Amino acid sequence: MKSDTSMDDDEAISRSLAGDLTAYEALVARYSALAHRTAAMLGAGDEAEDVVQEAFVKAYRHLASFRREAPFRPWLLRIVANETHNLTRSRGRRAELAVRLGAVTETVAPDDPASTAVATDRRARLLEAVRGLPERERHAVVCRYFLQLTEAETAQVLDWPLGTVKSCTHRGLARLREEVGSELA
């Protein structure tokens, strides 16, 4: 049976709570790619698929506790972030950012090898600089600029106060400016 991706999140949640697994499949289909990117960018690396699967299972189990007036996306991403944190903590080492080159896109003429090479080099330098940020700053920058979450959504996903998101994002961007300068502007 194919999931109905035309229903909005509220309807899918209501139907899921009533036992309609097809409705939950619609939520999984809608948010799988974003959840996978989130897990990978927050340090799950090759285990991002496992993190995402566990996050969707936990989200389903706790769907009844979801506050219906709140948006579903940040709630789910917070579960993904928590699962990623649990994974990296259990590894006993600091999380490493595993960003796919597709996460940062630049418009380059496909028939211009010089532009393609420059864009690839810029992307690699930027991603290396992001990987080198302290963990909290890296998480804030990844959520805000790679995942394009609002400050409020980032605060919810990372379970931080809004002021912490703002200060970590500011410090992270300042470090990136120092590291890569205006060459990426």
Rank of each mutant, 00 (worst) to 15 (best):
S65I: 06
T154E: 04
T164L: 04
A70F: 13
G181W: 12
T150C: 05
H36I: 05
T154M: 04
V99E: 08
P110G: 02
V57W: 10
E151C: 09
A81L: 05
T154R: 00
R15P: 01
R125K: 15
I13Q: 03
R144N: 01
G92W: 01
R175Q: 15
A129T: 13
R67V: 13
L76T: 06
V52G: 01
D46I: 12
R67W: 09
N86T: 08
K2W: 03
R122M: 11
L176M: 12
I79D: 02
A23R: 00
V142E: 00
G102C: 08
D4A: 04
L27F: 08
A44T: 06
L97M: 15
M1I: 00
R144H: 05
L176P: 08
A155M: 02
L27T: 05
K58W: 10
N86R: 10
P71C: 08
H170P: 00
L158D: 02
P71K: 14
W160T: 05
E179Q: 12
W160R: 06
G102Y: 04
E135C: 01
D8E: 14
H36F: 14
E106R: 12
T84F: 08
G19K: 09
R175S: 14
V141F: 12
S16Y: 03
A95H: 03
M1N: 02
L101R: 13
R138K: 09
T169R: 04
G102Q: 06
I79A: 07
L184R: 06
G19V: 08
L162M: 09
T84P: 07
K58V: 11
R37I: 02
V104R: 04
D121G: 13
S14T: 12
T154L: 07
S14D: 10
V142P: 02
M41S: 10
A95M: 04
D9S: 12
A33K: 06
P113S: 12
R89I: 06
G19I: 07
V104G: 00
F66D: 06
A33W: 03
K2I: 03
F146C: 07
L21D: 05
T154S: 15
L77H: 07
A59G: 10
R171K: 13
T105F: 02
R73C: 09
R94Q: 15
L184D: 06
G102E: 11
T150P: 05
R125H: 15
R123F: 07
E49N: 14
V28M: 11
Y24V: 04
R30G: 00
A39L: 11
L133A: 04
R61I: 10
V157M: 13
L173R: 09
D159H: 09
A129F: 11
